[in-house]
C-alpha cells in the first residue's frame, strides 16, 4: 500500500510548490464494478504549502430519493408517510486533518457543502426531521455517507487519505474535492473527477437489461431453461 503512493508522492516533492499552495492527485480515477466487486477505495494524495488544514469531500450524483416511514395500523406495520428528497447525493464522504466545525467557518462550510450536516436536504412531503435523520443513519450504516475519512499529513506538507467506496456504491460520476483551509477559509481547491462504472459481465448484463429488455427477458428464459435441462441431464446420469 505504501509503495502504491510512495512514487507519486516523491514526484510531487519535486514539483515547484511555491507556484501552487495545493497540489492533489488520485491514485486512480475509476472505480470498476465487476461481478466480483466488494467495495474499493481511492487514494487521494498531494502536497500543500503550510500552514493550513486539508479537507477532502467526495460526493456522488444528486438523486431524487423517497424515504418512507413504517407506521402501525391496527397492529400491522406498513409504509405510511413519505418524504421526497430532491438532489440527495447518492454518496458523500468527508475527511479533514482537524475537527471540521473548528477549522472551517460555518458559512464557508455551507457554501462548499463541507460536512454531512451541510448536505442539501430539500424535501417534499413530510417535513418531520426524523426523515433527514433516517437518511443519514441508513446511508451511514451502508457506508454511503461517511463523515470521518482519516487524512494523514506526513512531514508537514504531504497528505494522503483513502476514500472508501462500499459495495453498494452506484455507478455514476463522482467528484473528490481537495481543499486547503487557512484561517477558517478555503484558500485553494482542486476538483478531481472519479467515475464509478460497471465493467465486464456486470456491465453487459445491466446494459442489455435496460436497453433491450425484451431481448434480455428472452435471454434469461433461454439461459434458465438450459441450466434446468443440464440439471435434468446430470440427474439422469446419476
Amino acid at each position: 500500500m505504501i509503495a502504491r503512493f510512495a512514487l507519486p508522492v516523491l514526484l510531487l516533492l519535486a514539483l515547484p510548490l511555491r507556484a501552487q499552495p495545493l497540489v492533489a492527485e488520485l491514485g486512480r480515477n475509476v472505480v470498476e464494478v465487476s461481478t466480483a466487486f466488494a467495495g474499493d477505495s481511492i487514494l487521494v494524495f498531494g502536497a500543500f504549502e503550510p500552514p493550513g488544514d486539508i479537507v477532502i469531500v467526495a460526493r456522488g450524483d444528486a438523486r431524487t430519493t423517497v424515504v418512507r416511514q413504517k407506521v402501525s395500523v391496527g397492529g400491522i406495520w406498513l409504509n405510511g408517510p413519505s418524504a421526497r428528497f430532491m438532489n440527495l447525493p447518492s454518496f458523500y464522504a468527508v475527511g479533514a486533518t482537524g475537527p471540521l466545525t473548528e477549522i472551517v467557518d460555518p458559512y464557508e462550510r455551507r457554501g462548499a457543502t463541507i460536512g454531512l450536516d451541510t448536505v442539501s436536504m430539500l424535501s417534499r412531503g413530510s417535513q418531520d426531521p426524523a426523515f433527514r435523520e433516517a437518511v443519514i443513519r441508513i446511508r451511514s450504516a451502508q457506508g454511503l455517507y461517511e463523515s470521518n475519512v482519516p487524512v494523514q499529513v506526513v512531514g508537514g506538507r504531504l497528505f494522503h487519505a483513502r476514500v472508501p467506496f462500499p459495495s453498494l456504491v452506484e455507478p455514476g460520476s463522482y467528484r473528490i474535492d481537495v481543499m486547503l483551509v487557512r484561517d477558517r477559509r478555503v484558500v485553494a481547491r482542486q476538483e478531481l473527477p472519479v467515475s464509478v462504472r460497471r465493467v465486464g459481465f456486470a456491465a453487459d448484463v445491466s446494459q442489455v437489461a435496460t436497453a433491450q429488455p425484451a431481448l434480455y427477458g428472452l435471454g434469461c428464459i433461454a439461459i434458465a431453461a438450459m441450466a434446468g435441462w443440464l440439471g435434468a441431464f446430470l440427474f439422469r446420469r446419476s
Partner: peptide, 15 residues
C-alpha cells in the same frame, strides 16, 4: 414480520 415492530422504521428508494 408484519406484526413485530421493525428495527428500522424508515426505508429509502430511488424516486
Amino acid at each position: 414480520g408484519l406484526l413485530q415492530r421493525p428495527d428500522e422504521l424508515f426505508s429509502l428508494m430511488h424516486g
